[in-house]
Nucleic acid binder design. Structure first.
Lengths: 192, 192
DNA sequence: CTCGATTTTGAGCGATTGTTCAATTAATAT
DNA sequence: ATATTAATTGAACAATCGCTCAAAATCGAG
């Protein structure tokens, strides 16, 4: 067994899967689309992966990057939160809302996706909680329970993203952002 | 054309579809499961409906009942909200979270479901907004903008339900309920 | 160059889906 | 009772899906 080209091939397939996921979503993505995108035969995918595993692996790799960009950077809590609010619901982030919501649903029946979602969900929530906590220590805001606030803000984010991807009117990306900011303000004690 | 048994048959099929949706979810439900449940041949379903239309019609009928039970009853705002909080995340409501989240995702690609979701979403949000508004007028609580609060509470509900159906740990039904109550308290100005 | 091992291919399998339509059954009118 | 119309059936169809596997291509050691 093993590694002349195999590692390289696996990486190629994961990258191709990420691309397909971003433009087709978790449910519409197929193995054939992935192999075609990667420029390999259909059999090669099954030689290295099973579809549920590959799909979950690609999803997780994608969102590890997102989590890193969003929370794990060396900047002041204010700046991180400001970026979080400003970039939360911009049109460019739409594929990610969709993949997140789809993961939420798939996780109920797909074990690899459940593990991936559990890992990323924890990472996202911890990242947000840490930023919120750092902001408390640096005096940028006051929060009685940063972890609880992180959970509520994260859940509100999910709910707003759900409203947006469903193509239903009453919320626009702009108003969604304002609601997220407002919720944060309420968590902080309605000051400002 | 028309109506010796046809209306009756359509109602039978819709009822059977509701049952299948509740126990299998929107995505796993199939036409064969519905016809089998209704005790009719596979061809009959297609004589009266197309699957996307039937599925959306059954979903809408189901959630019109839910909306009625939840918000459109003659009781004091406090009692309505208390029931809302208490019954939001009990285990018995789980099929409804699931169907709601699945609808959110399906609506992106399924026009009938999008229309059904739009209708029900508006009804739910209006119902909650009205209860919140009534509570302001009766002096039960104070809210600067009941409609905005209804939107945020509804979105938070969706997000918490998403966390619950994904089978991921950090939130239990009990703690989800507490977070929803807490968010309401914050909307009201953190009193109590 | 040769031979064995590894990598890669893609036609085809089996399962599942919503849907069709000629045939059959049931109901109504004359 | 008979004929006409409506209601109902279910085997078969076409489209997808993930996946298999014998065959072909490619690579590396001797």
């Amino acid at each position: 067994m093993s590694t002349r080209k195999s590692r390289e091939r696996q990486a190629t397939l994961i990258d191709a899967t990420i691309e397909v996921l971003v433009e087709s979503g978790l449910t519409a993505a197929t193995t054939r689309a992935v192999t075609q995108r990667a420029g390999v035969g259909t059999g090669l995918l099954n030689h290295y992966f099973r579809w549920p595993e590959l799909r979950a692996a690609a999803w997780q790799a994608l969102f590890e990057e997102v989590a890193k960009d969003q929370f794990e950077q060396e900047q002041t809590p204010q700046i991180v939160m400001e970026r979080y609010f400003r970039e939360a619901f911009v049109e460019a982030a739409r594929p990610y809302w969709r993949l997140w919501i789809e993961a939420t649903e798939l996780a109920a029946s797909d074990k690899p996706m459940r593990n991936a979602l559990k890992s990323i969900q924890a990472r996202m929530q911890d990242g947000l909680a840490r930023v919120l906590s750092d902001g408390c220590e640096s005096g940028s805001w006051r929060l009685p329970d940063p972890e609880a606030s992180a959970l509520r803000l994260g859940a509100l984010y999910d709910g707003l993203a759900g409203l947006l991807i469903s193509g239903i009117s009453p919320v626009s990306p702009d108003s969604a952002e304002k609601h997220l900011r407002k919720a944060f303000a309420l968590e902080c004690g309605a000051e400002q």
